[in-house]
């Protein structure tokens, strides 16, 4: 058996009727098919948190009432946060994900 194989429960031990603990989606990293990445400019941001309200994937992270960053493990790069950031502020830019990854290497 390969080392990375997870021991999966059989029918005798599997929770009954497809009942799962809540919030397991958090453990499933779904951010890897993103083609655009949001980039935040803290100097422009007014902390209105409209982006946090609109993000459909709960990927705008907020701490103590202030914008903290993006959860790139789950962000899909949809660009909604950039679109809703007020026109006078435009604190979020969407950049090409491949370029962003190249830059990170």
């Amino acid at each position: 058996m390969a080392k990375d194989t997870i021991e999966k429960p059989g029918w005798r031990t599997l929770p009954l009727g497809d009942v799962l603990p809540a919030g397991t989606a958090h453990e499933f990293k779904t951010g890897d098919w993103r083609s655009f990445r949001p980039v935040h400019d803290a100097a422009k941001c007014t902390n209105c948190l409209i982006c946090w309200i609109y993000c459909p994937d709960s990927s705008v992270l907020v701490e103590a009432g202030s914008f903290k960053g993006f959860d790139l493990d789950h962000c899909k790069g949809c660009g909604i946060c950039a679109a809703v950031c007020p026109p006078k502020v435009t604190a979020i830019a969407m950049i090409d994900e491949r370029e962003a990854r190249k830059g990170a290497q």
Binding site: G17, D18, V19, L20, P21, A22, G23, T24
Partner: peptide, 8 residues
């Protein structure tokens, strides 16, 4: 809290 009927 739990969820019901997840993808299987």
């Amino acid at each position: 809290p739990h969820s019901l009927g997840a993808l299987d």
